[in-house]
Nucleic acid binder design. Structure first.
Length: 997
RNA sequence: GCCGCGGUGGUGAAAUUGGUAGACACGAGAGACUUAAAAUCUCUUGGAGGCGACUCCGCGUGGGUUCGAGUCCCACCCGCGGCACCA
């Protein structure tokens, strides 16, 4: 027998499989289909990384398994080839993106083939190929025709480094997703896709004459798909649905109605009423400030209003605002800030009061001031808010700073009080920062009521411990007005005064603390101890951070729910009812209505970059925006363009590209020079695989019906709110306009977890800890790499790479090689008793377990099962022999269940066993229940829940017999000595638990 | 802050969904083969105690439910991911 040498066999089989077209999706109408898809990669110059290998191996195993199970499997691969990296590389080196992309694709493909991935390459797509983007452009035109693609002036995210606008989804923490540069706001005219049209259910066009079909929206459609919870939650989060109400506040101009109605408070309200009547039915929206709120029940607590710096109210009342100059200055400053700067959480809120105009709270007639402040966002709701400082932390902060009234209208359930009742209050303490910078919680002495550490002469006992700094920081910054910087609490303030105002710190501890006896140090001296030191010195016993809890009484601002008070007709109502009641009232008075707001905005798809699909639009002086006629598609991306970014699309500088005739009037016109976001190209590629060479449609409806939707989709979690949301939008839009008859593209989705470097950090070129799959294949072979990555742990978990462990799976392959190629599995079989039964048991168990594990994508345990049966095989063969028929069956079935994981070795051994047709043409074996039944089991005997004895008994043993056997055993008798049996629990085939009194 | 996921040996991880915690591997230790090393094979390997049979303790922490809890409930701590001044 020769040695197992992956190098020799793997290439051989890869070539043969290619020749045999064994991965080609067959169109056998008798079989059910499975569409198994990987997220098509961006072909980067760096080549495939181990993360790619992980997800591609997972889908490959599943695809190979499904073929063996008799499905028509569609398992394609392609290239998300447009994008910034290739363009940026081109700017640096002068090499055209088409060239670098072509090279990268070749590398990727070679690497994929070297892993034995069974892709149907006859369906390969490339998003930068004109035959592909022709249809991207065609889809754009359909969207345009149906009003889903539109151009408008908008505040956009501009990346100064990439010199292009970005979609909201591509801005991460205020910075460009690609390069990390802080994004600035720019007013630009840009193309959008109306993704917001599909949030809620809508009706598809009546394509089959059966009437319009109701289709799920982006929100409720998530209920129907098998996706990770985290991904569904993230999408819901991103869409950000909020239910509440809009409310119109009348605006009072101080030198108009107010002067007319006199000066007293009484007359102001009277004046308001008159004023309000006259405007409530008028359609003059300028005289109202409309807000959106999720807490209409707190309207009685609204004591001021805030508009965003961009709000039209400011220019509308330009001449009534007496401090307009100051306001204007503030607005200009706000406009200069990046999103990131505006959102600085640590920074204080700023704002300017609009002098000369105010608003009237419609529920109580109170005149309230209006501020402009950049903590109110222009893009959400109406760009204006009603501020309820008693019940909103942001409003509270602002009100504190500007001395605005805070009116409490909801009584919260005081959870803290309840907790306090359950735990004993030991004392009251102070937080102080010592000279060395350590943070100390100091307990007030219960006898003297003094704080010994602070007022040394008074003496007394002290307790000290370090507390988790993060928890403290959180609580302190919110509750005690303490500034925090660099992870350290820097100021405590006057403790006594906090105490006086009821904002004292109370310390609670749980009962165990008391029983261990708290020892306080004597004397006035402040001793600094870390927790470890304290325990070491036995000054404090059993003191853990869980033992000590601090919280603060009487928080003024909270966002929680409770019971309405001081709220007129809402008094006594719980929040949920109060909201309802208030909305009814608002609707009745016609000053507000139920409203739903979403966080998500329309998708900005135009980019001022070169390497993307051109937007098929022509601008004509006479006809305006003219879509390119479908017959003129594709609008080909010119290759002779200087692609240095200038803030305009590089295509602007190509006269050949730009100068065209208007398709309507034939007058000279100009082409749109922006290209589409690459995410547009990737939003429909999974449809193209169904019919990749079609030049009359993006795909033939029959082919789409045959293969779509995708049954299993695997890819990185980083696409949660980008690609996966956009693709769902595309699918829904295409269903609405009759091109598809489903609206969720991916029925089952799984993410692969990140593979970390051996040091537990992320792999990155700069850290030099990147594992190159090519090197692993060269050393251990593709089968070993595939097995290793699957054996590491659950697919979706993040897990560190451990080169040493590859040896384990490598050994397993070598063992498999020997076992299959040796007679009698390599054991001496003469004269030993025959035990075919045991062999059949092993293999049937494995067929069942491995099949089930593949179906639930638990590849790690599937592999361990295969390792286990080889271990168990040895156990059997040491003392038994088998017949050649049993041996052959075991070997062949073993190879079939191994083949999805390690296809090369399985195919090689298959042929060496004398077979003449590929193992992948075979069927997944059916397991035989007969061999899974066990006649004897290990029955666990417990006494009071503790394992005391094991009984090997027949699996169908009767309860009475089992009890008898258990009670007879010596070890059980020992534990029952002198005790009375209360009851006996019997779980058939599993255990007996004897409970004593 | 909100939402989601997780916390089990020296390491990667299993655990039939409430029934023997640590399967399967890696690593480590001891031994066999070898002149030697590698490879391979055998045994040991959660912690503590005991010569031993065995005993006690162990799934982030503290409670609870149960004959029985890694699994269910309550409270909390820590880590990761998403969103974040979204009213």
């Amino acid at each position: 027998m020769d040695k197992y040498s992956p190098k020799e066999i793997e290439l051989k089989w890869q070539n043969r499989w290619a020749q045999w077209e064994s991965a080609k999706a067959v169109e056998d109408g008798a079989k059910p289909k499975k569409y198994i898809l990987d997220m098509f990669p961006y072909p980067s110059g760096a080549g495939l990384h181990v993360g790619h290998v992980e997800s591609y191996t997972a889908t490959d195993i599943y695809a190979r398994y499904c073929r063996l199970k008799g499905f028509n499997v569609l398992h394609p691969q392609g290239w998300d080839a447009f994008g910034l990296p290739a363009e940026n590389y081109a700017i640096k080196t002068g090499i055209h993106p088409a060239e670098t992309t072509k090279r990268a694709v070749e590398t990727f493909k070679r690497q994929m083939n070297s892993l034995g991935l069974s892709y149907d390459w006859s369906r390969e797509v490339n998003s930068s190929d004109p035959d592909y983007y022709k249809w991207t452009q065609w889809l754009f035109l359909q969207f345009y025709k149906n009003g889903l693609a539109y151009k408008r002036m908008a505040k956009t995210n501009w990346c100064p480094s990439c010199q292009t606008v970005l979609a909201n989804e591509q801005v991460v923490n205020g910075a460009c997703e690609r390069c990390g540069t802080a994004v600035v706001q720019k007013d630009l005219e840009q193309w959008f896709f109306k993704i917001t049209d599909f949030i809620e259910p809508s009706f598809a066009n009546d394509s089959d004459g059966q009437g319009p079909k109701k289709m799920a929206g982006l929100l409720n459609g998530l209920d129907d798909v098998d996706w990770p919870d985290s991904t569904k939650a993230a999408q819901r989060n991103w869409i950000g649905r909020s239910e509440g109400a809009t409310v119109k506040f009348p605006i009072v101009i101080l030198n108009e109605p107010r002067t007319r109605s006199g000066g007293s408070e009484e007359s102001i309200i009277g004046g308001f009423k008159k004023y309000y009547r006259s405007f409530a039915n008028a359609q003059d929206d300028k005289m109202f400030l409309e807000v959106f709120t999720t807490r209409p029940d707190t309207l009685f607590g609204c004591t001021y209003m805030v508009v965003c710096p961009e709000h039209p109210l400011i220019s509308n009342f330009k001449f009534q605002i007496s401090n307009f100059k100051e306001v204007q200055k503030y607005i200009e400053q706000a406009a200069m800030k990046t999103d990131l700067e505006r959102a600085e959480l640590t920074k204080e809120k700023t704002g300017v009061k609009l002098e000369g105009v105010s608003a009237v709270n419609p529920v109580n007639g109170q005149e309230i001031p209006i501020f402009v402040a950049d903590y109110v966002l222009s893009g959400y709701g109406t760009g204006a808010i009603m501020a309820v400082p008693a019940h909103d932390v942001r409003d509270h902060e602002f009100a504190k700073k500007y001395g605005l009234p805070i009116t409490k209208v909801v009584e919260a359930d005081n959870k803290n009080e309840r907790d306090g009742e359950e735990k004993q209050i030991v004392g009251v303490g102070a937080l102080i920062r010592s000279e060395s910078g350590k943070f100390i919680f100091q307990l007030r002495d219960a006898n003297t009521n003094r704080f010994p550490g602070m007022i040394a002469p008074f003496g007394g006992g002290i307790l000290e411990a370090e507390l988790p700094i993060n928890a403290l920081k959180r609580e302190l910054s919110e509750e005690l007005n303490i500034t925090t910087e660099d992870g350290e609490v820097s100021l405590i303030g006057n403790f006594e005064s906090h105490f006086d105002r009821g904002k004292f710190i109370r310390m609670y501890y749980v009962a165990r603390f008391e029983t261990n006896g708290l020892k306080m140090t004597e004397g006035a001296e402040t001793v600094e101890l870390s927790l470890a030191e304290a325990l070491e010195n036995k000054k404090v016993t059993n003191f853990t951070k869980e033992v000590i809890r601090i919280f603060f009484g009487d928080s003024e601002a909270y966002a929680g729910e409770g019971v309405s008070v001081n709220s007129g007709f809402l008094d006594g109502l719980a929040t949920v009812q109060a909201k309802k009641r208030m909305i009814e009232w608002l609707e009745e008075k016609k000053i507000g209505r139920r409203a739903i707001n979403y966080r998500i905005r329309d998708w900005l798809i135009s980019r001022q970059r070169y390497w993307g699909a051109p937007i098929p639009i022509i601008y004509c002086v006479k006809c305006g925006i003219v879509p390119v006629p479908e017959s003129d598609l594709p609008v080909v991306l010119p290759t002779d363009v200087d692609f240095k970014p200038t803030g305009e699309s590089p295509l602007v500088h190509s006269a050949k590209f730009q100068d065209v005739k208007c398709p309507h009037c034939d007058e000279p016109a100009r082409r749109e020079a922006d290209t589409m976001d690459t995410f547009v190209c990737s939003s429909w590629y999974y449809l193209r695989y169904a019919d990749p060479d079609n030049d009359r449609a993006f795909a033939d409806p029959k082919q789409l019906a045959k293969w779509l939707p995708v049954d299993l989709y695997v890819g990185g979690a980083e696409h949660t709110v980008l690609h996966l949301l956009y693709s769902r939008f595309f699918t829904k839009a295409l269903q609405k306009y009759g091109y598809l008859d489903f609206n969720e593209p991916f029925l089952k989705l799984r993410h692969q977890g990140t593979i970390l470097a051996p040091d537990g950090q992320k792999m990155s070129k700069s850290k030099g800890n990147v594992i190159n799959p090519d090197e692993v294949v060269a050393e251990y072979g593709a089968d070993a790499l595939r097995l290793y990555e699957m054996f590491l742990g659950p697919l979706e978990d993040a897990k560190p790479w451990n080169t040493a462990s590859i040896a384990g799976v490598s050994r397993f392959l070598e063992k498999s090689w020997k076992v299959v190629l040796s007679d009698n599995f390599g054991f001496k079989g003469d004269h030993l008793p025959n035990n075919d039964e045991a062999i059949y048991r092993l293999i049937n168990r494995a067929i069942k377990k491995v099949g089930e594990d593949i179906e639930s994508m638990k590849f790690n345990t599937a592999i361990s099962e295969m390792m286990k049966i080889l271990n168990d095989l040895k156990e059997v063969m040491i003392s038994h022999s088998v017949t050649p028929a049993a041996e052959d069956t075991f070997k062949k079935y073993f190879l079939i269940i191994l083949s999805p994981f390690a296809p090369h070795i399985a195919e090689e051994l298959w042929f060496r066993l004398g077979e003449s047709e590929s193992i992948f043409k075979k069927s997944w074996p059916e397991y035989d229940e007969k061999y899974l039944r066990v006649e004897s089991v290990n029955l666990v005997v417990q006494v009071n829940g503790k394992l005391r004895h094991n009984l090997v008994v027949a699996s169908e043993i009767e309860e009475e017999d089992a009890k008898k056997l258990a009670l007879e055993s010596d070890s059980v008798k020992k534990w029952l000595a002198g005790k009375e049996i209360a009851k006996i629990i019997f779980v058939s085939g599993k255990l007996i638990n004897i409970v004593t009194k």
